[in-house]
Amino acid sequence: MSIMTYRQALHDTLRAEMLRDQNVFLMGEEIGVFDGSYKITAGLLAEFGEKRVRDTPIAEEGFTGAAIGAAMLGLRPVVEIMTINFSLLALDQIVNHAAKIYGMFGGQAKVPLVIRTPGGGGQQLGATHSQNIELYYAFVPGMKVVAPSTPADAKALLLAAIRDDDPVLFLENLSLYNTKGEVPDDDTPAEIGKAAVTREGRDITLIGYSRMAHVASQVAEQLAASDGLDIEVIDLRSLRPLDRGTLIESVKKTHAAVVLEDDWLTYGIGAEIAATISDGAFDYLDAPVRRVAMAEVPLPYSKPLETAALPSADDVIGAIRQTLDAVGHRRR
């Protein structure tokens, strides 16, 4: 066990996997000479050379597609798309090709591809550079989408993604890169498709992923100290497949849930979670499932506006209190 940042965990895992398997190689804009836009790949060009750390032209569709093709022949490319916003230019290659090739050709070719890309707002990057659109990929059968919130999961899920024979969108988050945590030394991959109960409790279930799983844990600790609340926290970890069973088991115990999401509310990930809970635990609910999500605007640049649009810990605390009020009302 060592303490390290989320960034370091990603870097070390990429490096270890490249050492382990000659078929693993990296592609993306500015990942080599520039060391990566967020320095995840720092030093890897010097160590592995241009063949295995490929700086690409600014051509998301072209190089993502090329990675898919290389994967069809059994290589295991790990593509970095600078931020998830730019993955839109590769949407056709990801949705219409990576996610389809295995099924559409009757299982004759696999696509063992990883696309690493950070989401996240709150850095005054404006409307086009602050989106959380992982939903687009989580919507598509044939894709797997994972979203680690801790350095330990960054490692374990990246190991799983690289060793998996399907295309995996690996969602990182700008605000998590510098967060620290314990990371096991062994290289046991996580199980894609499994959520984690990161804190057990009886009063209410908080559900989040990526940055919002982090926020959920913080809020739970804070309310335990201030109000003596016993909050259960679930980190989804995998958006597709979605671990519905873990959600339902939790809500059957707590009878209430708040979903935290960094994307927009309408049609968002939280809508799927709420529908799942309604399907699987309707009779156990003491209050409607509440969603805390981003305001539905193209995110403004100006700081006060940006802050107002993004979900905060206070928003979550408010939603929890209101939900528990409703629970109290119903249980009377």
Binding site: G62, A66, G69, M72, D92
Partner: peptide, 30 residues
């Protein structure tokens, strides 16, 4: 698509095959 004959598709999206084919060439070169 026939893996044995190395015919790797058949693609319905106009231009979709071009990046993929480029990637297979990359894998050969690799």
């Amino acid at each position: 698509f026939d893996i044995d004959k190395r015919m790797l598709g058949g693609y319905g999206i106009v231009g979709g095959q071009i990046p993929l084919a480029t990637g297979v060439a990359l894998a050969i070169d690799y």
